[in-house]
Amino acid sequence: MMPTHLQLWLPLLVAVIFVSVVIGVLRWILLVRDSTLTAEQRLPRQFALIIVVLVGAIAIVLTLPVSESSRNQVLALMGVLISGVIAFSSTTIVANLMAGLVLRFNRPFRTGDFIQCNEFFGRVSEKGLLDTEIQTEQRHLVAIANSYLINNPVSVVRSSGTLITATVSIGYDVHHQKVTRLLEHAASNAGLEDGFVHVVELGDFSVSYRVCGLLTEVKNLITAKSNLYRNVLDSLHDGDVEIMSPNVVAQRPTDAQQRFIARADKRSAQPDDNIDSAQENVAFDKAEEAEKQEQSVLQLQQKIVTLAEASRTATDAEKPTLLRQLENTKLRLNSLLDTQAHDKAEK
């Protein structure tokens, strides 16, 4: 009688022990062994471990010493619970969690990137599991739910460069070649590369021109736009081109030869292209710091991998030096990760 009873429970006991050992070993390999992993790098490993736990739970259920109908009922209950969680996720915290996983895997943007989602615009300062934090031009911190980012189009300013544009309307009495030359000169003075001009609309009273130029240092996006607008004004006014609708003639009596052009103050003849140069440093300070920290972590991790590979192939004389460098690099990385965790806790 006793052997029969043991035979019934032995598969379950073996399955529990096997699943526990596998989960413990995988947890040590994926999470515990490498203490230098960032929260973003640990996330896919934690997700994989959750899948292993679910598979292990199903394996344990299949070895239960009960009838087949009872096992099917338990499996059905587990399926209902998982389905309920997924269904409930469409409008709850789990929705943002799943959206956060999608953003981590797809990586449509990085910390420090400029993004725009509908009316929200700013630099990414933090990427969480439930929401993404951006810093706006007014230095405000805005937390956007990850599900909102998934369900709406997100435009990302490329780190390699972006086009800065300005649109202006000029009367039909000015030839387009002259306007094009002046606007291209404005783009060049604004520090933009490969400037060009498009005619975008032929209106009833004026022609709409759009001047574009490539900005390679995207961190100065706000300043670059202001500089382009300023140089457009200066270039057109210096070229004796009036930026005003011809309808002004019908609005007030004036001499047909009179020009409505703002003249620069002779007392401040020096160029003011850098008047807004410090705006980004103030407006996006947290996003800038977050980007620097993330880059530092990646660089230290890459250095650890390089030193570890070098120490394995080094000679006996070189190995102690490489090992010391490896240990110091790990200490620096751990200190940086502790600082990041402390900053998040204080937030």
Score class of each variant (00 low, 15 high):
Thr4Met: 07
His5Pro: 00
Leu8Val: 03
Leu10Glu: 06
Leu12Met: 14
Val16Pro: 00
Phe18Tyr: 09
Leu26Ser: 06
Ile29His: 06
Val32His: 08
Ser35Trp: 09
Thr38Lys: 01
Ala39Asp: 11
Glu40Cys: 00
Leu43His: 04
Arg45His: 12
Phe47Asp: 12
Phe47His: 01
Leu49Thr: 03
Ile50Glu: 03
Ile50Trp: 02
Gly56Thr: 05
Glu68Ala: 02
Ser70Glu: 13
Ser70Tyr: 11
Asn72Val: 01
Leu75Met: 15
Leu77Ser: 06
Val80Tyr: 12
Val85Arg: 05
Ser89Gly: 07
Thr92Ser: 15
Ile93Gln: 05
Leu97Glu: 01
Met98Pro: 00
Ala99His: 01
Gly100Glu: 07
Leu101Val: 04
Leu101Cys: 03
Arg104Thr: 10
Phe105Met: 05
Asn106Asp: 11
Asn106Leu: 15
Arg107Glu: 15
Arg107Ala: 14
Phe109Arg: 02
Gly112Trp: 01
Gly112Ile: 01
Phe114Leu: 07
Phe114Tyr: 13
Gln116Met: 08
Asn118Gly: 08
Asn118Asp: 15
Arg123Gln: 15
Val124Phe: 01
Val124Ala: 02
Gly128Trp: 10
Leu129His: 00
Glu133Phe: 05
Thr136Asn: 09
Glu137Gln: 06
Gln138Cys: 05
Leu141Met: 10
Ala143Lys: 15
Ala143Glu: 14
Ala143Tyr: 06
Ser147Trp: 03
Ser155Asn: 13
Val156Ser: 06
Ser159Arg: 06
Ile164Gln: 02
Ala166His: 15
Val168Gln: 04
Gly171Arg: 03
Asp173Ala: 11
His175Phe: 09
His176Lys: 12
Val179Leu: 08
Val179His: 02
Thr180Glu: 12
Thr180Phe: 07
Thr180Gln: 10
Leu183Tyr: 12
His185Lys: 11
Ala190Arg: 04
Phe196Pro: 00
Phe196Tyr: 15
Val197Asp: 05
His198Ile: 07
Glu201Gly: 06
Gly203His: 05
Asp204Thr: 08
Phe205His: 10
Val207Pro: 00
Gly213Val: 01
Leu214Pro: 02
Leu215Arg: 02
Thr216Phe: 07
Glu217Ser: 10
Thr223Tyr: 02
Ser226His: 05
Asn227Leu: 07
Asn227Trp: 02
Leu233Lys: 12
Asp234Gly: 00
Asp234Asn: 09
Asp234Ser: 11
Asp234Lys: 09
Leu236Met: 10
Ser245Glu: 06
Ser245Asp: 13
Pro246Leu: 03
Val248Ala: 14
Pro253Ser: 14
Thr254Tyr: 08
Thr254Asn: 07
Asp255Thr: 00
Ala256Trp: 09
Ala256Lys: 07
Gln257Pro: 00
Arg263Leu: 13
Arg263Gly: 00
Ala264Ile: 07
Ser268His: 12
Asp273Lys: 04
Ile275Leu: 14
Asp276Phe: 12
Lys286Leu: 08
Gln293Cys: 02
Leu300Thr: 02
Gln301Thr: 05
Lys303Asn: 12
Val305Phe: 04
Val305Glu: 14
Thr306Asn: 12
Ala310Val: 04
Arg312His: 11
Arg312Gln: 15
Thr313Val: 14
Pro320Tyr: 13
Leu326Lys: 01
Glu327Lys: 10
Asn328Arg: 13
Leu331Ile: 12
Arg332Met: 14
Asn334His: 14
Ser335Met: 04
Ser335Val: 04
Leu336Lys: 06
Asp338Ala: 15
His342Ser: 14
Asp343Phe: 02
Glu346Cys: 06
